[in-house]
Design a protein around this nucleic acid. Structure first.
Ligand SMILES: NC(=O)c1ccc[n+]([C@@H]2O[C@H](COP(=O)([O-])OP(=O)(O)OC[C@H]3O[C@@H](n4cnc5c(N)ncnc54)[C@H](O)[C@@H]3O)[C@@H](O)[C@H]2O)c1
Ligand SMILES: NC(=O)c1ccc[n+]([C@@H]2O[C@H](COP(=O)([O-])OP(=O)(O)OC[C@H]3O[C@@H](n4cnc5c(N)ncnc54)[C@H](O)[C@@H]3O)[C@@H](O)[C@H]2O)c1
Lengths: 207, 207
DNA sequence: CTGACTTTGTGAATGTGAACTCAATCACAA
DNA sequence: TTGTGATTGAGTTCACATTCACAAAGTCAG
């Protein structure tokens, strides 16, 4: 095997594999072939094998992949083998939905804090998390929170981002449609829901 | 100019341009150069010019692009020049957030209906939309709804999808982590929030 | 009308990933 | 221990996307 750089598109698929493997594991399966996994997660078998081949020989020819070994390795690559603390900025509709979602835990995330600027929202308890004043963002560094989820209006996004960078945040999941600017060392992933919806009609044959 | 097939990645950027152009227009600007727009939307100027070159000569050398002409053309390409009716399936946390969001309207979408299976939710009024029983999905065909937004739990996603296809839905925005299967004529765009969050640590240097 | 300046549009080079193929390898039954 | 069937791992090709550089085409002042 050769250690090559893992392509970005492969990294994008790794969490999907991870979830599929976890589900298979729960079903009491210990080993899976690329084609079985392919059916399960709706990705081509050859794509799966190629993806796995970037980081080692995990399969046994004639048999398949050991679910446990493979999961461990994927988690290690994605750095999900350590707990990550995250904060939600903006406790509005979307922010509250994120706070209420239990599914992040399975990936090793702990949504540990929530912030807002609205006095009506500050102090409110959402899913056992008390919403704090956004002016207190600096405290994140002390609390070892390294990931932030931005769910504030577009206008406030860049300003909030700047505060987050000052507070030592290393990764941002951005729900606002604004393409925010950050120093190179900070990674941003933007989920632009409206844009994704907007390109749907393009693929729908008119008539 | 040559009419070439518009690359997928360009289609992905078109809604971003469209929003940027709309904002500039609101500021009273009528024309914009690729480098001005580049600053505004955080995309390289040459990428913008390349993207626009796929569908015609819209710029004037030495001046820039007419915001109105360009917006019209992008809308036409994305088929956003006609109104699209959409329905939300699953009026939980995420579904409610979508129902409450006014921003889809600017792209020409009308969120016209919501469905759920929970008797507690059915009949509830969210943002002026009454939640209906999910068993009534067939009615969507008659109401000319061609786009659906899936916000139900993973387990229910495929079943709901099948009903939607039967009801004549042509495009699906899927928030569930399940990679749903559909006939070729139906287009699915999946937003897998947890997966996007899960690949964030990969890009964060450890230490 | 000219020349300086701005900005577009695109060909070419480079980079990246998807798709396909098949030899190498392994489990297992006979 | 050997043949058979299954499955991986990786080389190759092709398609698509990004990046770069610059000629062509326009504006505008004087
Ligand atoms: N809800 C959706 O379906 C949806 C769809 C597409 C995009 N978005 C985007 O997601 C973001 C959040 O959307 P939402 O629907 O939750 O909006 P929302 O208005 O419900 O919530 C925004 C929250 O941010 C808070 N806020 C405002 N300024 C702040 C600041 N400077 N610091 C901290 N908090 C601040 C507000 O008090 C509010 O609680 C927006 O950028 C929106 O454009 C949402
Ligand atoms: N909230 C988040 O931040 C978040 C993050 C990642 C993924 N997701 C995914 O988005 C989806 C929705 O998440 P949520 O937080 O809104 O969950 P939720 O539990 O709040 O809402 C789900 C809703 O779907 C309804 N429902 C269940 N089965 C149904 C059926 N067969 N037909 C119609 N309605 C049905 C439920 O009654 C409920 O109202 C889930 O698939 C979840 O995995 C959500």
């Amino acid at each position: 095997m050769k250690y090559r750089k893992i392509p970005n598109e492969t990294v994008r698929r790794l969490p999907v594999y991870l979830r599929g493997l976890a589900q298979l594991s729960q079903q009491g399966v210990f080993s899976v072939s690329s084609s079985k996994l392919a059916d399960f997660v709706n990705i081509n078998a050859w794509q799966i094998r190629k993806d796995f081949s970037y980081f080692g020989d995990f399969g046994t020819r004639g048999v398949g992949y050991s679910i446990e070994r493979l999961s461990k390795q994927i988690k290690k690559i994605l750095r999900l083998d350590t707990l990550h603390k995250a904060a939600v900025i903006g406790a509005g509709n979307l922010g509250s939905a994120v706070l209420a979602y239990p599914g992040f835990r399975t990936y090793g995330f702990d949504i540990a804090a929530a912030f807002d600027s609205d006095p009506e929202k500050i102090g409110k308890n959402i899913n056992n998390i008390v919403v704090e004043d956004v002016s207190r963002l600096n405290a994140l560094r002390k609390r070892q929170v390294d990931i932030a989820i931005i769910a504030v209006p577009e206008k406030a996004a860049q300003q909030v981002t700047d505060s987050l960078v000052r507070a030592g945040i290393k990764g941002i999941l951005n729900f606002s449609p604004k393409r925010i600017s950050v120093p190179k060392k900070v990674k941003v992933i933007t989920i632009d829901i409206a844009s994704d919806l907007a390109r749907l009609p393009y693929y729908i044959p008119s008539g």
